[in-house]
Design a protein around this nucleic acid. Structure first.
Length: 153
DNA sequence: GCCAACGTTGGC
DNA sequence: GCCAACGTTGGC
């Protein structure tokens, strides 16, 4: 099993919204298409059913980890890329050869906020992709070591 | 709101 | 294939 960290801006989608979804399952991220090749490739090539991921809230007052999710549907074409009226419409994408993908995630549990500043205080976590300068990737792998350490915080 | 860092685009 | 210009991200 692999581990991941997936970012969402609270102004777009919060963990409360995930919690309040009846099935506690959503496509990642609802109403928003992921338009980054590296993130897409992670979903397509490296994510498996049952993988776990941290829910990370970014671009807000208290950035940090707020929960754990499970990957419950493997990468599939993002419907927004075919929707002409959508901001995420991509004219270069075809049904036969879709360019952008999504996965479904299910809430495992909420966590008390682990702030970014807290994560930065651990020397063992200094190589985490999320902590690297200039990091902008919305989906990043987390090592087993990092995963277990963060779970002990 | 600022701005550094990064990814993408498009002219050549 | 290079690279300048541009748009976006996201911490502060």
């Amino acid at each position: 099993m692999r581990y991941w960290l997936m970012k969402s801006e609270p102004s777009v989608f919060t963990i409360e919204e995930l919690e309040n979804t009846p099935t506690q399952t959503v496509d990642w991220i609802p109403t928003k298409g992921i338009r980054n090749y590296q993130a897409r490739n992670f979903m397509r090539d490296d994510m498996s059913l049952g993988d776990h991921a941290f829910f990370y809230q970014s671009n807000c007052e208290t950035p940090g980890i707020v929960g754990i999710m499970e990957i419950t549907k493997l990468a599939y074409p993002d419907p927004l890329q075919f929707l002409e009226t959508s901001k995420y419409y991509d004219p270069k994408s075809t049904l036969e050869n879709p360019r952008w993908l999504n996965v479904d995630v299910t809430l495992v549990k909420k966590l008390p906020l682990i702030e970014l500043s807290k994560l930065r205080s651990y020397a063992e976590l200094k190589d985490m992709m999320i902590l690297r300068k200039g990091n902008r990737l919305s989906i990043t792998p987390v090592t087993h070591k990092e995963w277990s350490l963060i779970n002990e915080i």
